[in-house]
Nucleic acid binder design. Structure first.
Lengths: 161, 161
DNA sequence: AAAAAATAGTTAGTATACGAATTATTAGAT
DNA sequence: ATCTAATAATTCGTATACTAACTATTTTTT
């Protein structure tokens, strides 16, 4: 097996592990990982837009919309059209949504996080920079389509109401 | 942002890049990455079973079945029930399937592979082992559910006809 | 001010991807 | 020999995830 094939197999294993963990979460807590991540994002940035969430967690708006549909149907989230700019939709947690967040398990790979945090500082850094390197190698010509994002700097300015 | 969050963001970027590349491939060549990977697997192991493919490329049988449905509908693959063990289905390429394979682009991340192969030997090794390490850290209790597989040793014994 | 361009979100259509349940068949236990 | 286990593949239901097309609105250009 070629080296890059080994790498891709490992990658496939990782993404599969993430997916399986999400399914498991869903059975136990009723929420998948992407749903939890979206909820947490809204919790941190109350009133934020769909687009903001999509960018900060690296998903398309369409995907976020469909996740929101489910969260809204279950009464965890409220969509509120902005009055000043009616294109925008502000996202808010319901009381139920807040409760669910508080009791929810970590959104992904709890075991992974545990293990990761037990590593030496330099090892952590090394894993992160290797992943970032692989990500940048994958980018190729899609670079412009996936603008670098500084998570955390997106929400300083209020964007609805 | 925590270190492990950065790592997960990179990971999400990588999986997204893979997905986007697959979509692009699909538009250009008519086949997605998973479809191409399955085709190549069959090309290498003519007559192999659904389960073998699922294991060697790290997918569930259900997923492989649905990929095969599309490949069969397009006349790239033939399913042939084994006579000696009627549970088994042997997979074969049609002439069209063989042609398509020959002219097909690399199944994933061509740019990635290019770049990867330009790296120094030790750098390649480092990327691979880091990915493998992350994969094993993700495994946790799913280890038994994902038995280690030695790709290439699965097909020595003929299993159909 | 009217036309064109940009933006936000949704919808439609398709393809992964999974577990659980189902069907058919084979292998193993009593 | 028969009843039970295990195995192989499929079907079913659900959730991601994407692009392209669409609607509604706002901004920019002319």
């Amino acid at each position: 097996m070629q080296k890059y094939e080994e790498l891709l197999v490992s990658l496939r294993k990782v993404t599969r592990a993430i997916g399986l963990y999400s399914k498991k979460l869903s059975k136990e807590s009723g929420l998948t990982s992407p749903q939890l991540i979206v909820l947490k994002e809204i919790a941190q940035h109350n009133g934020c837009m769909v687009k903001d969430i999509a960018q900060s967690i690296n998903l398309s708006s369409a995907t976020v919309t469909s996740i929101l549909d489910r969260l809204e149907a279950r009464n965890y989230v409220i969509r509120e059209r902005s009055l000043t700019d009616k294109r925008r939709v502000g996202l808010h947690l319901t009381e139920q949504g807040k409760t669910v967040i508080e009791n929810a398990p970590r959104p992904l790979q709890a075991h992974f996080i545990d293990r990761f945090e037990k590593l030496q500082e330099w090892e952590q850094t090394q894993l992160v920079s290797t992943m970032q390197r692989i990500a940048s190698m994958m980018d190729a010509e899609d670079i412009d389509a996936a603008p670098l994002l500084e998570v955390g700097t997106l929400y300083d300015v209020t964007q609805s109401e």
